[in-house]
């Protein structure tokens, strides 16, 4: 018994083969994080994302137009020990439709609460609608 335990301690752990394989949870969270919009102008959508994040009190850290990428963060006010970061990508699906995906992280833990994303997309819609006036 002891010998087998010792032996077990020595063996190198096997890398699981399914390390990068998608799980059901991943697929579910992806659908929560993604919305499609009937918007033609990708640039305007990206600006809308930036504006709505700034409205929500996020600090824009990086933006990349060619890739349609925005990274932002904010403290979980009123406490300043926790940080929420979010990465949003805007991709053109078809000529008049685009997909927006948001990934939010609380400290270093991914947020999988659908409510968070619902709220984000609600304020984004407001911002996209504002630009169209």
């Amino acid at each position: 018994m002891v010998a087998s335990l010792l032996l077990y301690g020595c063996s190198t752990p096997q890398t699981p083969q399914d390390l990068l394989a998608p799980t059901d949870a991943q697929l579910k969270i992806r659908s929560i994080q993604t919305r499609t919009f009937d918007v033609k102008d990708r640039n305007a959508a990206l600006r809308g994302v930036i504006a709505s994040l700034q409205d929500l009190g996020f600090i824009i850290e990086r933006a990349n137009e060619p890739l349609g990428l925005v990274t932002a963060a904010r403290f979980a006010e009123p406490n300043y020990y926790d940080v929420i970061s979010v990465t949003v990508t805007v991709r053109q699906d078809t000529k008049d439709r685009l997909t927006i995906r948001a990934n939010a992280i609380y400290n270093n833990k991914p947020i999988d609460d659908p409510k968070v994303y619902q709220n984000f997309f609600a304020s984004l819609e407001r911002s996209l609608f504002l630009t169209k006036e």
Binding site: L56, G57, P78, N79, I84, A104, I111, K115, F120, S123
Partner: peptide, 20 residues
């Protein structure tokens, strides 16, 4: 410790338009 739920931080508040 006052704790804010992440969902609340993605919501526009009454003060948002004032700040804006």
């Amino acid at each position: 410790v006052t704790h804010t739920e992440p969902a609340e931080l993605f919501q526009l508040t009454a003060e948002t338009s004032k700040h804006r």
